[in-house]
Design a protein around this nucleic acid. Structure first.
Lengths: 151, 151
DNA sequence: TGCAAATATAAGTATAAACATAATATGTTG
DNA sequence: CAACATATTATGTTTATACTTATATTTGCA
């Protein structure tokens, strides 16, 4: 559907439309992905933390700060996201004896098992943009990178 | 900065990168815009509701449902967003005598004054994508529309 | 007419972002 | 070593999304 119809609005110009289109499309993609995650009882940031913990398990245990640097959202409240994962038994959390300010976080067996069961989610990620050809995705990435360029 | 460096991650392929790039770029644009809104004490959904109320004032008063249909986020909790605007005196809310299930919402003088003072925010919207040329924005809109096509 | 279904909104719960502040641990410097 | 700055994490508050359930009202139909 045309974005104008989907939000029953109108745009001042192509730039205005671009901004709304970015937000609207991103939200729709997240919505579809979240439905799959919910089936496994996870919210998206929780899933992202688990994937970081698994991805860097050769450097485990990780600190909260290390995880935070790798989150999409730099303001992520990793402390409380870890709280929820800890309560579900998906991660362990102990005080780092070398620096007692830090916590040492590791993914548990249960956490790894859950990620294994969620392989479908991972594959889905690569299909959400399937309407675009390889060249088109490359074009889009080039445009998005350009949007973020400073000065 | 390259998106790979910004989130200190790696991507399986261009599609995977595209998805992350969309989320990351959209979040960054929102972040910048929200800073301006905060100066006026509004969160983004509150600002959007006010703009809808002003934009359709010739059809005023509007129902909650009418507003919801025009929100970017279709699951917006417009009832409670209106609560907050009402407490700030920016909108009025009365029971619709023709259909007492509905509420009649209107923007107040105070609300209109606030929007007037926020003209800078409105102009900023059109500059957030200024790194792109007109043709590039059009390309991006075409790509985003294509992402959302069903089958 | 009477009653079930549909509609409009509100309210409850869990999760998270955004922001501020606090608490504790560590590093540095005089 | 004391005083101060900095680092790391936790906590508190407000706002919002996502989802569920409740309530009041209207509508449609047997």
């Amino acid at each position: 559907m045309r974005i104008e119809d989907e939000i029953k609005g109108r745009f001042r110009n192509e730039y205005h439309k671009g901004l709304i289109n970015l937000k609207y499309t991103t939200r729709q993609l997240s919505y579809e992905f979240n439905k799959s995650l919910k089936e496994h009882g996870l919210a998206e940031p929780q899933y992202n933390v688990l994937r970081i913990l698994r991805g860097f398990s050769y450097e485990a245990p990780l600190s909260i700060g290390f995880i935070k640097e790798r989150m999409l959202d730099k303001d992520s409240d990793v402390s409380r996201i870890i709280d929820r994962l800890f309560e579900k038994g998906l991660v362990s959390r102990i005080e780092n004896p070398n620096d007692r300010r830090q916590k040492s976080i590791e993914i548990t067996e249960k956490g790894l098992d859950l990620l294994d069961k969620m392989l479908k989610c991972e594959l889905e990620v690569d299909t959400l943009l399937n309407n675009l050809t390889q060249t088109e995705v490359e074009d889009m990435n080039r445009l998005l990178d350009k949007i973020r360029l400073k000065e």
